[in-house]
Design a protein around this nucleic acid. Structure first.
Lengths: 207, 207, 207, 207
DNA sequence: GATGAATGAGTTTTCATTCAT
DNA sequence: CATGAATGAAAACTCATTCAT
């Protein structure tokens, strides 16, 4: 009887979970959550159907697991704090570039997760609570500070941070919807996005 | 023998189709395409299961029908043309306000359609072909013209129109993801969005 | 209110029934009884689905109707009686030739009817009672007489007439099974069949 | 991880397939292919509905499986070869007796298969290709040889072997159609059949 | 009588989940 | 723990039959 608190056991279990989630992400991205079958995921992971149920209570838990993986990327909170030292323009540019790269890396997970996130209220609640709320809270503080300092226009903070997030999210969604232009010029899109967000579309008038 | 080309027959058929699509939109929005059952849609529409199949060949055709409904709103192309008489700032403000209102109206359809659109390649191809491509083409022409006239910054046109579209799309997705702030201040969000898109986030420097 | 005993009404009804049965035979032959739909039959007959139910109580009754049509060919009994004047060899040749022609003519009906006849006990019972039993009875009398007269080998009469019938039936079945040789040389097959039945396969020894 | 090439696994799989096919044959014979339900077959086999689909891809595959079983009886080709040592009369008698016994044994399968074979073109093509064509080919060679040796009448070989086959088939069909005389005297029928086929019905004339 | 839209029972098939090995 | 065969609930879809027009 293996000791469940044994750290080696723990690591083995974690490794197995990751193996399964990786396969799940791949199959979900390809077929979508509902059309993906446990059998396909198991085959992709190179294990038996039943084994999955030793690590996850049911198919839905795989989605939760994927969401956690999205969350585990440890860099996110750091960058807003870095922002306090950089000026906003530089920060937003760096941040968006980084974020776009990260989104691209997580695109497979996103592709499997997002459609279900739009539909599944439980998942949505968890996503709200675990990812969106904390992110927005940090961002709101940061933006509020910048506005107070007169570095940003005095727009409503809550909406502004959401519109910023929405812009990046929208580009990702367009990508997932199969838009060839975005797919082929992903990094470029990030740059144009920061340019628009910083200075707007309008040509500044010259005196 | 009722004439199948009889306009009254036609109208009855169209009315029934709309009744079914309305129910489908509602149930898809609530449960998602896959978890929605024909039985639920039929119950919602107040008809028998089999009746649905007298009007649509299969469940997927309901999605296609919903997509067509999205497409049938006849106003879209008009507005870009109106833009040629307004100045860009006024146009974008009016356009986005209108667009946000329309999205909100179509939100139920969008909620049912979008998740499946992210997953179903056939549907995606049709959406690309029937909705996105024509829209982008018109917008690209219009933006290209504005840039040539020096009214807009000389950003890459293809990416710019997509980023504009992505921003609105992203706000809608955030809404669908259950974000309370966006849900409660939908029209406000539209306004902030146009402000950001027009002038950027940065405070303009004062001499 | 049309008088149901009106002979003109009767004829109209009969004509409509025949029209429906003709369509049914065609569709049954093509798709088989179960895969044939009332809609297809109605379309083939150029009428509405519901109209069929004004003439036949249900789909199965169409099979019964087809069986009756098979039975209505008025020539069958005649030929055995003719046999009493011809010698057996001439009679069998003529009879089989005629029978093969008739089977070929009824092949469409047979193709729709036979598969269901092999499966449907009710239909089988009616076929036994209405077609096979009377035919075999007449044939048994005739063969019994011939044997008594020393014109035929003294084989068991009941089995002999059935084997004779079975031979022709078997050729028809082989035809329905798609055998190209039989399909292409149907009349020839009838001739060879009578030769075999009359003189056997063996070469007669020559003194 | 059980090896899928493990001969024990193979045998278990084969045994299960046979169990299912046996049940299918029984239910098909009783109700006919279309009226037979997967549920009935599963109940008859003593397993769950879904289990059938672990062994056969769909209901039609059960028919194919039954056809293969019919084909697997390994004795068929042997007998024609034996015929080369026996004289024809003895051979046909032995052969038909054997064949009739075999048909009787396979009658349940035949009853389920034949009606569908008359209706389903795919199945028909496979039956032609896998069973009828090879059988007829062997038989034609054998009969051709006998005719060349003057042991048989010089009838058209292709038609003759088909008429021989048709006779046996016809007797089986008569049986399936519920003819009591054939059902009760099956073996006798075989004997009469060989007598007729060998010497014909006519009394030989005595000098 | 003719029509064909509406009905819903009944079928095949899929697949998440269980559990004996 | 791993396995994968067995399970059976659940869903899409078909189509004979009815009946209001």
């Amino acid at each position: 009887m293996p000791d469940p608190t044994d750290p080696i056991q723990q690591q083995l279990i974690e490794a197995r979970k990751k193996q399964i989630l990786k396969a799940a992400a791949q199959v979900f991205a390809e077929k979508g959550f509902h059309s993906a079958t446990i059998k396909q995921i198991a085959r992709t992971a190179g294990i038996a159907d039943g084994t999955i149920y030793n690590y996850f209570p049911n198919k839905e838990a795989l989605l939760m697991g994927l969401m956690n993986q999205l969350n585990e990327t440890p860099e996110r909170p750091i960058h807003f704090q870095e922002g306090q030292t950089l000026d906003f323009e530089a920060f937003l540019t760096v941040y968006l570039e980084h974020r776009m790269g990260q989104i691209q890396q997580d695109m497979t997970i996103l592709q499997g997760l997002l459609p279900e996130l739009l539909v599944n209220r439980d998942l949505q609640a968890r996503y709200q609570h675990e990812i969106m709320a904390p992110t927005f809270q940090i961002a709101e503080q940061y933006f509020g500070q910048l506005i107070k300092e007169g570095k940003l226009k005095a727009l409503p903070v809550e909406l502004t941070v959401r519109i910023l997030a929405a812009s990046a999210l929208g580009v990702a969604v367009l990508n997932l919807l199969g838009d060839k232009v975005i797919q082929d010029q992903w990094q470029e899109a990030g740059k144009v996005l920061s340019q628009v967000l910083l200075g707007g579309l309008k040509e500044e008038k010259h005196g």
